[in-house]
Amino acid sequence: MSEAIRVDSEIMPVTSHGGFIHPAAHVADGAQIGAGCHIGPGCVVGPEAVLGQGVELVAHVVLDGRVSLGDGVKVFPFATIGLPPQDLKYKGQPTGVSIGPRSQVREHATIHRGSTGGDGMTRIGADCLVMCVAHVGHDCNIGDGVILVNNVMLAGHVEIGDFAVIQGGAAIQQFVRIGRMAMVAGMSGVERNVLPYGRVKGFRAKHAGLNTIAMRRRLGLSKDQVVTVARAVHDLYRGGRPDEAVESVAAAYPGNPQVAEILAFARNRGRHGLIPFGRYGDEEESGEAA
C-alpha cells in the first residue's frame, strides 16, 4: 500500500494503481489486482485470482482458486466464484473460472470452477448478467450478453449461446446446449437442446416458437424474413423427427443464414438431441424479449 485516503469516513488503503481495498477485506499474497479495482469489506480474494482493470467487488464476495475477472466486472454481496465443483470425482485438481469484461454477478450467485470431466474451465462471456441466487455449475460455457434471471440453475457442462435469456427459476440439465438468442421461459425444466432463436417453455420444456423480438432488434430482420425462418423450423419439426429432416429443410431454404445456423446446430445433436415440439402458434406472443 502506498498511501491512504478518507472515503465515507473510513481510512481506505489505496493501491499503487489507483484502486482501494477495504481494511476488512482479505486479499491473499499472489493475487493480481488490476488498476482501479474496488474491493469492499468482507471480501476474500484467493492467491490465484486475477482481476482486470476497474473490477468492483462490492462486499462479502469470495473468489477462490483460479478465478479471472475481466475489466469492469462487478460482483455483488455474498456471491461466490471459483469454489470447487459439486462433483464427487473432483479431487482438487487445478481448474478455474473465467468471466469476461463488464459482466455482473448479483447477490448470492454461485459460479463453480471447472472439473477434470471437461476442459477444466467454467466460462462466462462479456456483458453478461447473472442475477440473484443463480447457479452456474462446473464446466459451463456461456457466451456474450447472456442473461440468467433470478434462481436459474445450470447443471454442469451446459452451453449457452450469445444473447440468450434464461428466465427466473429455469433448470437446465447437464450437457444441454442453448442456441444463440434463444429464450427459456421461467420455471421451465430443459432436458434437451434448444435451437438458436428458439423459445421454449413448460415443466418439461418444449419448443413454443421463436424469439422474434430479438431477431428483429438484434439482427434487423423484417417480418417476412422472420416468418421464413419460422416456417423452416416448422418444417424441421413437421414429421416429428427433426434429426431426419435437416437435409430436406436445408434444400428448401438455401442461402438463408439464420436457417443455416439453426440446421448446423441441429446436426450437432450432442448427448440429448433437440427439444421436442410443443405448440407452434403466434410468434408475436407477449413475453418475448431481445
Results as ranks from 00 to 15, higher is better:
Ile160Val: 14
Ala25Leu: 07
Phe76His: 13
Gly114Glu: 12
Tyr237Ile: 06
Tyr90Asp: 10
Gly114Phe: 03
Arg192Trp: 05
Gly240Tyr: 11
Val227His: 13
Ile172Val: 15
Asp29Gln: 13
Gly198Phe: 00
Val130Trp: 02
Glu288Gln: 12
Gly100Asp: 04
Lys74Trp: 05
Cys140Met: 08
Gln86Arg: 03
Asp224Gly: 07
Ala126Glu: 14
Gly209Thr: 07
Met1His: 11
Ala266Pro: 04
Ala109Glu: 02
His108Val: 04
Val62Ala: 12
Cys43Leu: 07
Gly240Arg: 13
Gly19Cys: 06
Asp71Gly: 04
Gly70Thr: 10
Ala251Met: 10
Lys206Gln: 15
Gln258Ile: 07
Phe277Lys: 14
Gly186Pro: 13
Val246Glu: 09
Asp8Tyr: 11
Ser115Val: 08
Gly34Tyr: 09
Gly18Asn: 06
Ala79Met: 09
Ala79Asp: 01
Thr212Val: 15
Val249Ile: 13
Val55Met: 07
Arg113Leu: 03
Ala25Gln: 09
Ala232Ser: 08
Ala164Arg: 00
Gly19Val: 10
Gly239Cys: 10
Ser68Phe: 01
Ser68Thr: 15
Val130Pro: 00
Gly52Gln: 11
Val146Tyr: 05
Val259Gln: 00
Gly287Val: 12
Ile39Val: 15
Ala109Gly: 06
Ala164Glu: 01
Gly161Ala: 08
Val149Arg: 01
Arg199Pro: 02
Gly220Met: 08
Ile124Met: 09
Thr110Cys: 12
Gly281Ile: 14
Ile147Gln: 07
Pro94Tyr: 08
Cys43Asp: 00
Cys140Ser: 07
Gly239Trp: 06
Val149Trp: 00
Cys37Val: 05
Ala182Trp: 03
Gly70Ala: 03
Gln174Cys: 01
Val44Met: 07
Asp64Ala: 13
Ile111Gly: 02
Phe265Asn: 06
Arg177Gly: 00
Val233Tyr: 07
Val176Met: 06
Glu3Ala: 08
His38Met: 11
Arg199Lys: 07
Ala79Gln: 01
Ile111Lys: 00
Cys43Asn: 10
Arg192Thr: 03
Ala31Arg: 09
Ala245Thr: 11
Asn150Val: 05
Asp119Arg: 14
Lys74Phe: 08
Asp119Tyr: 13
Val55Ala: 09
Tyr90Ile: 05
Val44His: 13
Leu195Ser: 00
Ser68Gly: 06
His22Leu: 05
Ile81Thr: 04
Ala245Asp: 08
Asp29Ile: 07
Pro257Phe: 05
Gly34Trp: 12
Arg269Val: 10
Ala182Pro: 07
Ala290Arg: 14
Gly168Arg: 03
Pro94Trp: 11
Met1Val: 12
His112Gly: 02
His112Leu: 04
Val27Glu: 05
Val200Ala: 06
Pro41Lys: 07
Val55Ile: 12
Val14Asp: 02
Glu244Val: 09
Val190Asn: 11
Gly239Leu: 09
Ile99Ser: 01
Gln32Asp: 12
Ala171Asp: 01
Arg241Lys: 14
Ala4Pro: 01
Ile147Thr: 15
Glu56Asn: 13
His207Glu: 08
Gly65Lys: 12
Val246Leu: 12
Ala35Phe: 08
Met187His: 14
His234Gln: 14
Gly19Gln: 05
Leu57Pro: 00
Gly34Ile: 11
Ala185Gly: 15
Arg238Pro: 04
